[in-house]
């Protein structure tokens, strides 16, 4: 049996994974969106397996999406082993694990995704994701939203859908278009501070315990919460008149 002695890697590992430098051959070749997405998918697997933390993952996905050549893509996996079974020790985190991974490159700090099963219209999903990213601090005033063409190319959706979402964000005063450059964040959404969030989370857990004790299963809890949320929004979404009328009614009853 002839074993290739050129590579010092242990036998099993070399067989299972072509990782290291040669994952994508022809280093100088330009990469396609499909390859970028495939790379993103593989990064997600590494993230799911615990080999990358959130910040590293976000950073590398950003670099994958802006990768131009195969060498760029390979760089993302240079320190990641593909053989990862749960028992394999994790790679050192932080520190030098993201070579050259400084601040974000040009382009947008966020990427859109679509959930076909959500029933939410596509344009609204894009709007909500921007709002969500604003709330969580992924987007700040001055940041650029992905270019319309890039969103179209990465999600395979109608260009008019993206335009509609961006118009809606502009109408809401969250973004502003700069001719020839793109769409930029110009306002921020009120962010809840972390201590507040923890407190709210705790009180929600308390409520969940009560709900379970009362005999509600998970679906029942979701249904109740959704219905309460809708009532809450409807009541709040009404005009001042309606609120006035409602309180007058209550007074009348009282």
């Amino acid at each position: 049996m002839v074993i290739d002695k050129g590579n010092g890697a242990p036998d099993g590992r070399a067989g299972a994974s072509p990782a290291g430098g040669g994952l994508y051959s022809d280093q100088h070749l330009r990469v396609s969106d499909a390859e970028r997405e495939a790379a993103t998918g593989r990064l997600a697997e590494h993230f799911a397996a615990g080999r990358l933390d959130q910040a590293e993952f976000d950073d590398r996905v950003g670099r994958a999406m802006s990768a131009r050549t195969r060498a760029d893509l390979n760089g993302l996996f240079a320190d990641l082993s593909e053989t990862g079974s749960p028992g394999v020790p994790e790679l050192p985190r932080g520190g030098g694990s993201t070579p050259g991974g400084g601040p974000r490159g040009p382009g947008s700090p966020i990427e859109f995704r679509l959930d076909a099963a959500s029933g939410v219209p596509t344009y609204l999903q894009l709007v909500q994701q921007v709002e969500h990213a604003l709330r969580l601090g992924y987007l700040k005033p001055g940041d650029q939203l992905p270019k319309v063409r890039d969103v179209v190319a990465s999600l395979a959706i109608n260009p008019n859908t993206v335009l509609k979402a961006y118009r809606e964000l502009e109408t809401k005063g969250l973004t502003a278009g700069r001719p020839g450059q793109g769409t930029f964040i110009q306002a921020t959404l009120s962010q809840v501070t972390l201590p507040d969030l923890t407190g709210l989370h705790k009180s929600l857990l308390g409520w969940l315990t009560t709900a379970e004790a009362a005999g509600l299963d998970q679906d029942g809890i979701v249904a109740l919460f959704t219905s309460a949320l809708r009532d809450f929004h409807e009541r709040r979404g009404g005009t001042g008149d309606r609120r006035g009328a409602a309180s007058a009614e209550t007074e009348g009853v009282a």
Binding site: A116, T122, V152, A153, S154, A156, I157, N158
Partner: peptide, 28 residues
């Protein structure tokens, strides 16, 4: 479809396509 739609976004090309894949039409 991403290639088709990106080309439409790039230079305003119109597209007419026949399809059986209803679920994807809503996006496209």
């Amino acid at each position: 479809m991403a290639t088709v739609l990106a080309a439409a976004a790039d230079d305003g090309m119109s597209v007419v396509l026949s399809s059986h894949v209803l679920a994807e039409l809503e996006r496209v």
